[in-house]
Design a protein around this nucleic acid. Sequence first.
DNA 1: ATTCTATGTTAAAAGCAAAAACATGAGGCA
DNA 2: TGCCTCATGTTTTTGCTTTTAACATAGAAT
Lengths: 205, 205
Amino acid sequence: MPKRAYHHGNLKSALIEAALQLIALKGPTGFTLSEAAKQAGVTPAAVYRHFEGREDLIAEAALQGYTIFGDLMEHAYQSGQPSALAAFEATGRAYLAFARKFPGHYIAMFESGISVNRTPELAQAVARANAVLEKAASDLSQHIPEDKRPPASMFSAHIWAMSHGVVELFARNSPGRASPFPPEDLLESGIGIYLRGLGLIPPDS
Amino acid sequence: MPKRAYHHGNLKSALIEAALQLIALKGPTGFTLSEAAKQAGVTPAAVYRHFEGREDLIAEAALQGYTIFGDLMEHAYQSGQPSALAAFEATGRAYLAFARKFPGHYIAMFESGISVNRTPELAQAVARANAVLEKAASDLSQHIPEDKRPPASMFSAHIWAMSHGVVELFARNSPGRASPFPPEDLLESGIGIYLRGLGLIPPDS
DNA sequence: ATTCTATGTTAAAAGCAAAAACATGAGGCA
DNA sequence: TGCCTCATGTTTTTGCTTTTAACATAGAAT
């Protein structure tokens, strides 16, 4: 194999790819710009032609993550239609699936400490993902009597919180906080109980 | 005031204190051993007389955190006795209160990437905190008919997950993921709905 | 009083982020 | 065809970090 030409061709994507791998492997703290550059076959300084710096590289990985995340959630939502309940439960499963399939993205998004308001682009990608979740929650909550219906944004915040909590505490093997249950079961049962509490599914196991 | 004597006196605690402050301020990534040393009025190398290195310093902060956390949860649990429900809800509130009052500890515990099995001591402190939560959940779940009662460990995992999710997503101002609701309300309502789903509180707002 | 040891300092090696100065080569244009 | 230009990489440098080794000091023990 001939050594790479002077110009890489698509260094930007290669760097994001390398960053995602390294972030997933060594955590947001262990990740270094230099190592990502090396893995892309390039000197550290070259990174600055495509990103403002280390943080910006992580931020772009997160942006890509939110975009994929939004797509997946949207697709899951559609796949459950026309049943509001099926659509809702599909988004729940998609959440966990995303965290499992795209660990680098997930970490960049939620554990790297970057602000969602870092750039307008990022904020918009977050807002879009949020909107899908809230739409699924809103659809479903139409089935609740209006007087005892929580705001859809609260509903979706609850579900997002539980999903995120399950991922952070029990789905990541590294901290080793082993639960006796597979994360999928944990989340599904938790959401099930919650929905029962809203009267959205009948009270039988 | 005369400059500090050659021997600090209680450098170890001073370093943990400084670390907690800096971690809360700049996140686990921004935190540096050197800065903690400077803040304690000592050279970086002095740190190595009391800790194995940067990670170990963070780990000890986390250990201290889990100990305080366990104490607070225990106290909250006792404060609600003899009502299992009151005790349970008190632990929920205590969780959020801890995250708010001890941000440095919380971050060291849950966001710094240290493994809970790093040392036996740490693992034990985590286990103890876990045990309090599980006891509260177990007490409460006695009030559920045995055939439709989830395992106490699953019950407590659900609550822990939602609590942690609320803290991470909505209680930390830095990521700027503003929810329209105060985290306390969000968590309290979420737990309320969940408990209703288990039939532990009657279905009225 | 003298020695031992815990606890500090200085000094130095190795790695990283970031910026400045320099190099290369691909595409537009005569 | 041949030159210019500019996007894209490389070297080099600065200042920070972690970590280790060698040295210094003072409180405690004998």
